[in-house]
Amino acid sequence: MNYCKKHWTLILGSLVLLMMVSGCKKKPPPTPPAPPPKPVTATLSANPTSITAGQPSTLTWSTDGADDVTLDGQKVNVSGSQTVQPTETTTYHLAAKGAGGTQEATAQVSVAQPTPAPTPQPTPQPTATDEQVFAQAAQDIYFDYDKADLRPQSQQIISHLAEVMKAHPNWKVQIEGNCDERGSTEYNLALGTRRADAATQALTQAGVPADDLKTISYGKEKPVCTEANDDCWQRNRRDHFTLTQH
């Protein structure tokens, strides 16, 4: 949107300039020839000229013999620099106007996209990528002792996972609730069920279809560690996510 505005401003500016130039021509020349005005010069450069989206580039310009300098239609000092962060490849226009005429200069900043832009027809992605994307997004979430409430950090993980899952509607995910070794085998199965259900509820509330989710409790049957200490108990009080279909 900004890019379009810049261009319209540019086109309008050029038109006004043309009209003014032609208007001048129509005027009769003034009395005895004055010393020729100093010719106007202008340079504009960008450094670096290639960035990836979101990175900055510095525009540097200098002019000579001009008293009215605009950069993309905005009045600026006769020389100076400015930092820009374009999201797409952009050509910046410098216009310098003085008694000796008008000079323009351009500089282009080419922008590389960090991820390829989505194409109209989604093409199936290679398996490895899906699994990598899933592994990155679906981190284990941890619970307090005898609790199935999501911690704030877990809610962030779930929100992010929900967005990734919505971008991959063919994914099916199994949510596995786990408990530490303390307490009864049967009660821990019920507690693990509730922990898995807590993640399921949060994901469906964030817009993931319930059909894409399956919950299972492993109670205290599948621990990741077996030491009887707080650290290991905490590591076992978790929901683990598994990508079962993609």
């Binding site: 199965l189 019920a190 069920t193 509730r194 259900d197 399921t200 509820q201 919950t215 409790s217």
Partner: peptide
Amino acid sequence: SSMGTGSS
């Protein structure tokens, strides 16, 4: 069972 509500 969690057949009805998702929790036991």
